[in-house]
Amino acid sequence: MANPGSLAITVAGADAVRDELSGPRGRRPQRSFSGRNIMIYGTLLIAALYYLLPLYVMVVTSLKGMPEIRLGNIFSPPVEITFEPWAKAWASACTGLNCDGLSRGFWNSVRITIPSTVISIAIASINGYALANWRFKGSEVFFTILIVGAFIPYQVMIYPIVIVLREMGIYGTLTGLVIVHTIFGMPILTLLFRNYFVSLPEELFKAARIDGAGFWTIYLKIMLPMSLPIFVVAMILQITGIWNDFLFGVVFTRPEYYPMTVQLNNIVNSVQGVKEYNVNMAATILTGAVPLFVYFVSGRLFVRGIAAGAVKG
C-alpha cells in the first residue's frame, strides 16, 4: 500500500473499506507508447518528412558549388558552404538580355502585390458589409452573380480582358495588372467578408443605427475594429495568391514589369549555357520566401480567423 491516503483507513481496520479505496482513483494513467499514439505520431512524422525533404534538398543544393553538385549526392550536406548562388540569383542571373537577377522581379511583385491586396480587400470588405447588413433591392441577385463569378475559369476571360485593358490604354502596365488582380479577387473576398459580417450579431448593427450611426460610421467605427481576424485571412489569401500568380503576370505585363514568378521561370528554364542548379534552387527559395514568411508570421491569426468565420456562421 503505497498510497498514504488509504493507509490511515487500513490502520482503522475493515478490510472491505481498504479494498474499496485501493481501487482506481484520480486521473487515469496515460501510456505514452500506446498503439494509438504510435499511429498518430508516426503518420505525422512521415507526412512532415515527405514535405520537408524537398525543401532540405533545395537548401542544401543552393549552398553547394557546381563541382560538388556534379558529384550527384543530392542528400549530402555541403562540404564547402558558399552563398555565391544566392547572390547570383538575386543580383546577376540572366534572363534574356537583362542580367540583374531576381531583384527586379521582386520589386515588381511588391509593386503589384501591395496595391492589389489593399485595394481588393478595401472594396471587398465594404461589399461584404453592405451585402450582410444593408439588404438593398436586388442584393441577393447581386451576390449570386458575384459568386458565379468565382466559378468561371480565368482562361475564358483572358482575351476579353486583354482587349479591355488595351482600349483603356493600360495594357502591359502595372496598373493594368493591379486592376486585374483586384477584380479577380473580388468574388471570393466578398464572400469571405459577407459571411463574416453575417456572423456578427445583428443587434449590434441595430444598436448602432439607433445610436444614429450611418453606413460609413458603422463600418469604420463598429465593424472594422471587430474584424481583424478576417482581414488577416483575406490579406494572407491575397498576398500569397497574387505573389504566386504566374498566368496574369505573363499575360498582362511587359518583360520589364514581369513579376518574380515569371522571372524565376525564365531563369530556371533558360536553355543557353550550363544548368546552374544551385542558382536555380536559391532563386526558387527566394521567390517562395515571401508567402512562407507571411504564413509563419500570421499563421496563428490565420487559423483563428478561419475558425471565427466558419464556426460562428
Binding site: E203, L204, K206, A207, A208, R209, I210, D211, G212
Partner: peptide
C-alpha cells in the same frame, strides 16, 4: 431610428 426619440435595449446587450 435616431430621429424617433427612442432608446433600445437588446437581449444580447449589443455592446460595442
Amino acid at each position: 431610428p435616431k430621429d424617433r426619440g427612442i432608446g433600445m435595449v437588446f437581449q444580447s446587450y449589443a455592446l460595442y
